[in-house]
Simulated scan of single mutants.
Amino acid sequence: MEMQAGNSTESALIKYKEGLGMFTQKMPEFARQFNAFTEECFKEGALTQKQKQLIALGISIHAQDEYCIIYHTKACLDQGCSEQEILEAVGVTAAFGGGASMSQGVTLVQECISEMNQLKQ
């Protein structure tokens, strides 16, 4: 997915949820199994859900997966991550992914933080 000017991160989340809903109707058992797997992966354990979301955000940035970047930036905020924690995760990701990771972090991640914080107000 390439974000177009004027598209908000909220509309991308809606688009993702709609696509997931359609896929779930067509592949219900697969979707159920996948959802159960990811719920288990993100369950509180030795790592907190907050830490797991920061890891997922870093992986999403490195993979250049814009839907997941938006989804996990929101999840980081929902788990109580500060902007500083998120930006430090961007920095660690950039250490591995170089300029491509940095470009997502300084554009899409910051746009998501800004939009999600405005929605909370």
Results as ranks from 00 to 15, higher is better:
S11Y: 03
S11L: 03
S11Q: 14
A12S: 06
L13V: 09
L13M: 15
I14F: 04
I14H: 08
Y16A: 09
K17F: 01
M22A: 15
F23A: 13
F23L: 15
T24G: 11
T24V: 02
T24R: 10
Q25G: 06
K26C: 05
M27Q: 09
M27R: 08
P28R: 03
Q33S: 11
F34M: 11
F34H: 02
F34W: 13
F34L: 12
A36V: 08
T38E: 13
E39L: 10
E39H: 12
E39Q: 15
E40D: 14
C41H: 04
C41M: 15
F42R: 05
K43N: 11
A46F: 14
A46I: 12
T48H: 09
K52L: 12
A56D: 07
L57Y: 05
L57F: 04
H62P: 00
A63T: 09
Q64I: 01
Q64E: 11
Q64V: 02
D65H: 13
C68L: 12
I69A: 05
Y71G: 02
T73E: 07
A75L: 03
C76R: 01
C76N: 08
C76Y: 03
D78V: 03
Q79M: 10
Q79R: 08
G80L: 10
G80A: 08
G80W: 12
S82W: 12
I86G: 02
E88N: 05
G91K: 00
G91A: 04
G91I: 00
G91P: 00
V92F: 09
T93G: 07
T93S: 14
T93M: 03
A95E: 03
A95N: 06
G99A: 13
G99D: 03
G99E: 05
A100W: 09
